[in-house]
């Protein structure tokens, strides 16, 4: 079943589907950058569940990255488009459950919450909001997969290249950051207060 729409509108919708994936990755890059801003500017080290939510965010972005890459390689199809958002949906549901877990941990009366609030909400509450939006976004994209599926091939333009580069750089930054935080230990402490690697090496 597909909607009967004029060809010119269909072309615009295809492009909207492609740029939707690019905007998706960029939006999560901004969220991850904000997390780094909280970490370095406010010296709030991410806890166990915070780190797991960052992982879920990276995991969630794999779908749109898959869509952008398949389009750049000239292999885009409705199946690949839906598969991309399938990757995303699974990651988003896991991330939503993680942030919900932290929300219920910190939801008791008089609990000040973990870390400082941003615009009145804590980071994990914002994470829950972003994952909920992603679930809805994925649902809409899968519902209209036929209409929103990008053209078979589009050259990888400057903006998508920059967004993918930023995404890869942020994953690498997270690897380095968490290594500094965990050091040579197997796991993060429940409430991290220092960079274990620097502490173990006697630097700080």
């Amino acid at each position: 079943m597909s909607l009967q729409i004029p060809r010119s509108v269909q072309r615009d919708l295809s492009l909207a589907g492609y740029w939707g994936a690019v905007v998706f990755v960029f939006a999560f890059c901004v969220v991850l950058l904000c997390a780094f801003l909280l970490q370095f500017a406010s010296s709030e080290l991410p806890c166990v569940l915070c780190m797991l939510q960052r992982m879920a965010m990276i995991f969630t972005c794999m779908g749109p990255v898959y869509i952008i890459s398949r389009t750049a390689h000239g292999e885009m199809s409705v199946t690949n488009f839906a598969r991309g958002y399938g990757y995303t949906l699974i990651g988003a549901v896991i991330g939503m459950l993680m942030s919900l877990r932290q929300l219920t941990n910190r939801g008791a009366p008089l609990d000040p919450g973990y870390g400082s609030a941003v615009l009145g909400l804590h980071a994990y509450t914002w994470a829950f909001v972003t994952f909920a939006i992603v679930v809805l976004w994925s649902g809409v994209n899968m519902l209209f997969a036929v209409e929103l599926s990008p053209p078979r091939q589009l050259p990888l333009g400057v903006v998508p290249k920059l967004v993918l580069g930023l995404f890869l750089a942020l994953i690498a930054a997270n690897v380095v950051s968490v290594f500094f935080e965990v050091g040579f230990h197997w796991k993060l402490p429940h409430v991290p207060t220092r960079y274990e690697l620097l502490y173990d090496l006697g630097i700080k």
């Binding site: 992982m55 990276i58 794999m62 990255v65 890459s69 890869l168 994953i171 997270n174 690897v175 965990v182």
Partner: peptide, 18 residues
Amino acid sequence: MDAIVIALMAAMAVLIIR
């Protein structure tokens, strides 16, 4: 362990792009 998981995702992202 956290670093290993994120590094694995980095490898996956690079493979998806290339």
